[in-house]
Design a protein around this nucleic acid. Structure first.
Lengths: 160, 160
DNA sequence: TTTTGTGCAAAAGTTTTGCAGATAT
DNA sequence: ATATCTGCAAAACTTTTGCACAAAA
């Protein structure tokens, strides 16, 4: 998942400061920084820029600490989402998908055949946003936008 | 769900011929037309143009015939999808969403606040399709596209 | 009459909840 | 010290599967 396409770069990798920021954000709200949360955030950071299902996170976290039950993981994800450091949506199979919040709002491109995803910078979508705003006064939320279809590789492999 | 917006009409209501077409399509493949399938298709037609979750369909079908178990309903949905009269995707909460195939491929507009959906005719999205095709050689599938954000009514009610 | 579909019951898979005890601050 | 978090176990929920019986063609 999430490879390069057409030479466009993936999102910049998050720095270690991220952990510090999250810890501070938690403390600011009277919440606690625990070993479990550290591991969960770590796992999330490893797949920054990608989407990870809840079940996959459970698996990855338990690979590091088999004692951690799913409930702790899901609850931590809720917490991280509540302070804005993670967001979740739902994948094609309906399972939850989480990812670390990037610095910039962006949409996604998803290939229906191979499942690869890419990020679309907002600049590429200004026309869409402007158009829907003009014709329908609708404010588009790019961060929830996933455009699906067929990527060049798959189209070439099996031209429909 | 699915109200009018800015004077744009909802999709045309499906005619009774639809049922006849589906029956014929089933028979053409050696499949059978049963009372259960009739009811399920009926329920689907009632919400043509909207999206209905699997669970909601189970509920609605059982309101008409409490004897029908979920398995029959889901299997019928599979069958209807396999012959191309229904398609499914996944909603924001991750549950399956089904809808009767419209005559024309179209995208959806979804308000994150009130949950209302509208159809976007392909004509409004030609720029998006052309742009992604040009810059990334990506073939957009409009029927799976849902653009979410805030509708004019909600924006007015609570300007963020 | 033969293939397909139904109904039931149980399973599968992901995510949630309740609560006693442990831990971070 | 005390409010928050963890771990466990069990539940919630949607959807799937296996199999004997029923029904459509």
């Amino acid at each position: 998942m999430s490879q390069r396409m057409n030479g466009l770069p993936k999102m910049a990798a998050p720095t270690g400061d991220y952990v510090t920021q999250v810890r501070a954000a938690l403390h600011a709200k009277g919440m606690r920084w625990t070993p479990q949360r550290r591991i969960i955030l770590d796992v999330l950071l490893q797949s920054a820029g990608d989407h990870v299902t809840g079940a996959a996170l459970v698996e990855q976290v338990q690979a590091r600490d088999p004692e951690t039950p799913p409930s702790t993981i899901y609850r931590t994800l809720d917490v991280l989402e509540s302070i804005g450091y993670v967001c979740h949506s739902h994948g094609r199979d309906g399972r939850e998908e989480f990812h670390v919040l990037p610095g910039e709002e962006h949409a996604h491109l998803l290939c229906n055949r191979c499942g690869t995803t890419w990020e679309i910078p907002p600049a590429e979508l200004t026309e869409l946003v402007a158009s829907l705003n003009a014709t329908r006064r609708f404010r588009v939320d790019l961060s929830h936008l996933t455009v699906s279809g067929t990527c060049p590789d798959c189209a070439e492999a099996a031209p429909a």
